[in-house]
Each structure stands twice: as C-alpha cells, then as structure tokens.
Simulated scan of single mutants.
Amino acid sequence: MNLSMRQLKLFEAICRCHSLTDAAEEQAISQSAASQSLKELEKQLGYSLFRKTGRTLTLTEAGSLALPKVRQVLANLDSLRFPSEQFVGGVLNVSASETIASYLMPQLLADFVARFPKVEPHLNIDNTERVVQHVENSQASVGFIEGPAYSSGTRQELWLEDQLIVFAGPDFHWSSRKNIPSGELAAQPWIVREPGSGTRAVFDHAFQQRQETPRIKLALSRQEAIKQSARAGLGVGCLSQLSVVDELASGVLVPLETSLNLTRRFSLLSLKEAAPTALVKEFLQFARHWKP
C-alpha cells in the first residue's frame, strides 16, 4: 500500500470541511485533482470512505473508523517539527460552544500561548452537541461545553461554574418591577437559544423541574440576535451572565429576578481512549487550573 500524505491531508480536510470543493481550496489543488486523489486513496485502501448523496459526502462506516487513525498519523507527522516528544508546540484543535468560545476562550488560549509560544491554536465554535461530535470524531483534541451531554467516547470533567440570567428591554412590562412572579414564568414570550445548545438545555431543565412548558416565541442560534430581540421588546431573553455584562451595565437590558434554577457548570472534554500528546496533556492541565 502506497499512501501519500497529500491524500491523507485531503481526506481529513474533506471530513472537517464537509465539502470536497472547500477541502480542495484549502489544500490549494483543483477540484478535479482532489476528486482523483480521493479515488486513488480509496483504491489503495480497498474500500469507500464516503457515500455521495447529491453534492453531499457522508462518511461510510469504514471511513468513520479510518478518520481517527488518519488524524493520528497527521499529528505524528506534525510532531516531527519538534525536538522531543515532551516539547509543547504545534497545532492545538479546540472546539467550544458559543458562550465559552466568545467570552472565555480568547483569554485562555492567549494565556496558554504566552507560556508556550510554539503552539498554534485553532478554535471551532459550535453548539454543545456538535462540540461533542468534534471530540468524538477527533476533529478537536479538547472540547468545552455549556450543558449536559451524553457521550460514551469522551471523558467529561466539570470545569467552571456559570449562571444564566433572565433579562428584557427597559420598556418590557416587568422591567419596572425587575421581577417575574413565579406563576407568570411559563406564560412569558421567551427568546432563547436553539435546541442542541447547552444554554437551551439548562433553560429547558429549569422548567422541567417546575413541570411547566414555557412559551417559546423565538429560538435563535446567535446570542446577539437574542439580546437585540429582547431589547426591541419582543420578549424575555435567557443567556449566560457572561454575554450580557455590557448591556446590563449600560441599561439597554434589564435583569429580571425569577425562581428558575439557572446555575450550570461548564465541562471540559477529551477523547476517552486516546493517549493525549504532550501538547494536549499540557493544555488540559493548564485549563483545569485556569481562572478567568
């Protein structure tokens, strides 16, 4: 079997980009050359890596099994740039859900790179479900999530505590009282994150504890859209306190007291079965002791 690094890098890029066209562009080759390279790789391996549905490429079962091995080969190749196995440097692939990625990751990664200047951090931002998938599929070496998530393939550690906060625009009818009575909570026009996000999971669980179903007016995938919708008077928002500090300080949003249990813990994820590289091991230790 005569596999080339170019073929393996292309395969990994297709899995990461979810597109042959985008992967070809990233690898600086033509789409026809990428297609031919993929065919040659599958011929060498003796099995198909992808199934094609329209323009969409989906990993076959064999391709899913091959992907972690290919990423390990590429990681080992990258490590040849450094003088020893204990040297901390190279590409660090991190995946984090939106609140963590927006308000905690920049400083965490900056602090880590300040200690280890040879590290090249790559940060992917997605919701909790997708972050778990990224770690399970070895698309990320480390993941950070905001809500509860089941995963048999990852090791999950409690990381930092966070508090969700309920808020509205200054003209919303409860804003002058700064309190929503317990009996009125479910009836509010709620503006919340989409299903699959950690923030939404905590919000849903808080109402499940009350055995109530909240009235969801808008479910949005962007925090800024939720804040602007609440500011415009469309309803009551619920996000991490980290994401509304400036708006609450300026008064464009007003915090509302409720009886909802909205405390949560952020979690740190790593692959359960894989032995971490020196880089990943050092980053995990750094993250465990880091304070914002």
Score class of each variant (00 low, 15 high):
residue 53 T to L: 12
residue 36 Q to E: 14
residue 125 I to W: 12
residue 199 T to N: 07
residue 82 F to I: 02
residue 291 K to I: 05
residue 189 P to K: 07
residue 234 L to I: 03
residue 191 I to R: 08
residue 81 R to V: 13
residue 60 T to E: 02
residue 228 Q to P: 06
residue 76 N to Q: 15
residue 17 C to I: 14
residue 128 T to R: 01
residue 39 K to W: 04
residue 257 E to A: 05
residue 276 P to H: 07
residue 166 V to Q: 12
residue 52 K to Y: 00
residue 180 I to H: 01
residue 166 V to M: 08
residue 176 S to I: 04
residue 283 F to C: 14
residue 204 D to M: 04
residue 236 V to M: 06
residue 44 Q to V: 14
residue 256 L to V: 09
residue 25 E to D: 10
residue 32 S to P: 02
residue 142 V to H: 07
residue 66 A to P: 05
residue 137 N to M: 04
residue 230 A to K: 01
residue 97 S to R: 00
residue 40 E to M: 12
residue 211 Q to N: 08
residue 149 A to H: 13
residue 108 L to P: 10
residue 275 A to H: 07
residue 154 T to A: 14
residue 233 G to L: 02
residue 65 L to R: 00
residue 283 F to M: 11
residue 79 S to Q: 03
residue 18 H to R: 04
residue 218 L to S: 04
residue 30 S to K: 12
residue 290 W to P: 12
residue 37 S to Y: 11
residue 52 K to I: 03
residue 255 P to Y: 05
residue 8 L to D: 01
residue 290 W to E: 13
residue 207 F to C: 00
residue 180 I to S: 02
residue 60 T to H: 02
residue 154 T to R: 15
residue 261 N to I: 13
residue 86 Q to M: 13
residue 213 T to Q: 06
residue 232 A to Q: 13
residue 32 S to Y: 08
residue 105 M to I: 11
residue 237 G to W: 05
residue 167 F to Q: 03
residue 275 A to L: 06
residue 98 E to A: 15
residue 245 V to G: 05
residue 248 L to I: 08
residue 38 L to M: 08
residue 40 E to I: 12
residue 277 T to W: 10
residue 87 F to L: 00
residue 108 L to C: 11
residue 193 R to A: 12
residue 10 L to P: 03
residue 191 I to F: 04
residue 251 G to W: 14
residue 54 G to D: 15
residue 111 D to I: 07
residue 74 L to F: 10
residue 178 K to G: 07
residue 97 S to Q: 05
residue 16 R to Q: 11
residue 171 D to Q: 12
residue 273 E to Y: 00
residue 202 V to S: 03
residue 119 V to Q: 01
residue 73 V to H: 11
residue 197 S to E: 11
residue 194 E to D: 10
residue 72 Q to E: 12
residue 124 N to P: 05
residue 174 W to C: 09
residue 105 M to K: 12
residue 136 E to S: 15
residue 11 F to C: 08
residue 157 E to H: 11
residue 164 L to T: 04
residue 284 L to C: 06
residue 147 G to S: 01
residue 37 S to W: 06
residue 193 R to T: 01
residue 187 A to K: 07
residue 12 E to K: 13
residue 232 A to S: 15
residue 73 V to L: 14
residue 244 V to Q: 13
residue 122 H to K: 14
residue 247 E to I: 04
residue 124 N to E: 15
residue 156 Q to K: 10
residue 250 S to V: 01
residue 252 V to G: 02
residue 148 P to A: 10
residue 2 N to S: 02
residue 186 A to F: 00
residue 109 L to A: 10
residue 56 T to F: 13
residue 173 H to G: 13
residue 52 K to A: 06
residue 172 F to P: 06
residue 242 L to C: 11
residue 291 K to H: 03
residue 244 V to Y: 14
residue 249 A to M: 03
